[in-house]
Design a binder for these strands. Structure first.
Length: 281
DNA sequence: ACTGGCTCCTGAGGGC
DNA sequence: TGCCCTCAGGAGCCAG
């Protein structure tokens, strides 16, 4: 499950081998991802100017446009020796003329590889994305303003890419625990000062996870897949009935918008803050 | 404008 | 041991 931190880790790991390098060859073994894979032939011989991230999208920018890559929930990008045996679910291969070639493997095929001519931000997938959670434009104040009049649960609101991009299910759960806010609360009922704590918690959770993402980076240069360290850092996610690390109360699991949701009924009360007002400060 | 539900897909895990 | 069933999960899309 590549979340924003893993995508960022992937970006940092790939950039040195991709930026400034020409795409010398590519092959598509399975075109049917979320949308049909689209890589124009005339990209061959062109150099990647920059490898950027927007939310969970990786953008490989060329002079005339950009390749938009998304890893869905099971995708990974890794370098393998040229000519290596294809693994099951190796769908796309990109060859930048370096020692190894880049393979996209995605068992569930929720990811995508799409070409956007011209300004990449104008692509429909990117055009309506909200602010980056680790940039300054993201703030409690902005969350407060956007949430007025909204009745959806705060966790669903946080996972809305138009509100803030890149916050997936796991990090929404973890952030709300840190902020002491119950995930089921209506977003419009949350006062400004609590949104400040939520915003800080989101930043902290993502930043901490990126700092642990170095493991993932080594993973795809050394292709022995290993789960990232952040798994062991999870405070509430997938811990139903286990004791809260803060107070020992058994954690509750509910389903919100079809997604698993976990919280501590004591530290994340139905109204207001938990006993420790903010664990992210 | 919002909201909730459906959809794509496969592997993991539980039950028998 | 093995088969079958259920379900997770990002996020676009659609209907109400």
């Amino acid at each position: 499950m590549p979340e924003l931190p893993e995508v960022e880790t992937t970006r940092r790991g790939l950039a040195p081998y991709v930026e400034g390098h020409k795409l010398v060859a590519f092959s598509i073994h399975e075109r049917r991802l979320r949308w049909p894979v689209d890589i124009p032939e005339d990209l061959l011989g062109q150099a990647v100017r920059r490898l950027r991230r927007r939310g969970k999208y990786l953008l490989a920018e060329f002079d005339g446009g950009a390749l938009i890559l998304h890893l869905g929930m099971s995708g990974s990008l890794r370098f393998v020796p040229r000519g290596s045996e294809l693994l099951t679910h190796d769908h796309v291969e990109l060859d930048f003329g370096t020692e190894q070639v880049l393979r996209l493997n995605d068992p569930r095929r929720f990811g995508c590889v799409l070409w956007q001519q011209g300004e990449v931000e104008s692509h429909p997938l990117l055009a309506s994305l909200g602010p980056e959670p680790l940039e300054n434009e993201f703030s409690g104040d902005q969350l407060f303003k956007r949430s007025r009049g909204r009745r959806v649960a705060v966790k669903i609101f946080l996972m809305d890419a138009k509100v803030v991009t890149g916050v997936g299910n796991i990090y929404a759960n973890e952030s709300l625990f840190l902020a002491g806010v119950r995930p089921t609360r209506k977003s419009g009922s949350i006062p400004r000062h609590q949104w400040e704590h939520v915003a800080r918690a989101v930043r902290k959770v993502l930043a901490d996870s990126i700092s642990l993402g170095g493991t993932t980076l080594r993973d795809f240069i050394n292709p022995e897949g290993r789960p990232g360290y952040f798994r062991q850092q999870l405070r509430v996610y997938d811990r139903e009935s286990e004791p809260c690390i803060q107070c020992g109360t058994p954690l509750i699991a509910v389903v919100l918008g079809g997604r698993s949701t976990f919280y501590c009924p004591a530290c994340q009360p139905a109204k207001g803050f938990g006993p420790v007002s903010c664990r992210s400060c």
